[in-house]
């Protein structure tokens, strides 16, 4: 499937949640369902910007044996599947601990298209933007509705190809009722000329449709993590069955982009 034929969606999963095999199956399902981008979260012990659902997914992924090295291997495998660009999302400490340079190089080698590290923003980035530019890997800033003009100018000066717009304040997981202020926020971002990835509380086809013309892609996270969580729960229908999880995920992602 060509990139243009894919849906304007970036779908999110937590690497190794609930296991390496099942997270790979979920990624395959997302690709089957037509997602244009995948966002693979590397779990951190202290995910202070995430809600309960992704917290649970992260601690379970760590118990399932996630390590940064294994995470890069998984990203390599997913990247090779169908040419769907994979972005790695994580927290600053995993990047800083390994060394920004080494993290970026390893991500690039694994075939990742970019990195999303919300707590390494321009000006407080430990040279992530500079190193990313040198290695030709996209570093995606995450901005929120109250961002000042001054900060937006700094973000713009990094010339990001992609810009992640968090549609509301707060943490991941809670549903976002889209209103005029969301559209105004997206209007403010347009002049930056970046491809806008909009997320935080986007879980329904209606939301995806509502912002479709204003964004490059909608990011759907917690809603899909929930599908995996349910499948992984004791008694979950797809328990330990990668093929069924893949099918279910494919259907769900397909449904997100709505009819036509």
């Amino acid at each position: 499937m060509a990139a243009e034929a894919r849906s304007p969606l970036m779908t999110h999963l937590v690497a190794f949640f609930p296991s390496r095999e099942l997270s790979l199956a979920a990624a395959r399902g997302m690709i089957d369902g037509g997602a244009r981008y995948l966002e693979v979260q590397f779990p951190f012990s202290d995910p202070s910007a995430d809600g309960p659902l992704i917290q649970t997914a992260c601690s379970s992924a760590l118990e399932a044996g996630f390590t940064v090295a294994r995470g890069f291997e998984l990203v390599g495998e997913i990247s090779a599947l169908a040419g769907v660009p994979v972005f790695i999302m994580s927290y600053a400490n995993l990047v800083v601990r390994r060394g920004v340079e080494s993290f970026v190089e390893r991500a690039k080698a694994a075939g990742a298209a970019g990195l999303i590290v919300p707590d390494l923003m321009p000006g407080s980035d430990e040279r992530l933007y500079e190193i990313g530019a040198r290695s030709a890997i996209e570093i995606v800033p995450v901005v929120a509705p109250d961002v000042s003009e001054e900060r937006l100018a700094l973000v713009r000066s990094m010339r990001p190809a992609y810009l992640y717009a968090a549609l509301r304040a707060g943490i991941t997981g809670r549903y976002t009722a889209l209103g005029s202020e969301n559209h105004r926020f997206l209007d403010r971002l347009r002049p930056l000329g970046a491809r806008i990835l909009a997320g935080f509380g986007v879980s329904s086809p209606e939301q995806v449709a509502e912002i479709r013309s204003e964004v490059h892609a909608s990011v759907v996270g917690s809603a899909l993590v929930r599908i995996i969580l349910d499948a992984a729960a004791p008694g979950g229908a797809e328990r330990l069955d990668p093929e069924r999880l893949r099918r279910r995920m494919g259907e769900r992602v397909r449904a997100l982009s709505g009819p036509g």
Binding site: A49, A92, P118, L120, V142, A144, D146, S148, A166
Partner: peptide, 9 residues
């Protein structure tokens, strides 16, 4: 001040 943008303001 290594925070997500939401906490900067």
């Amino acid at each position: 001040r290594y925070v997500p943008e939401v906490l900067r303001p």
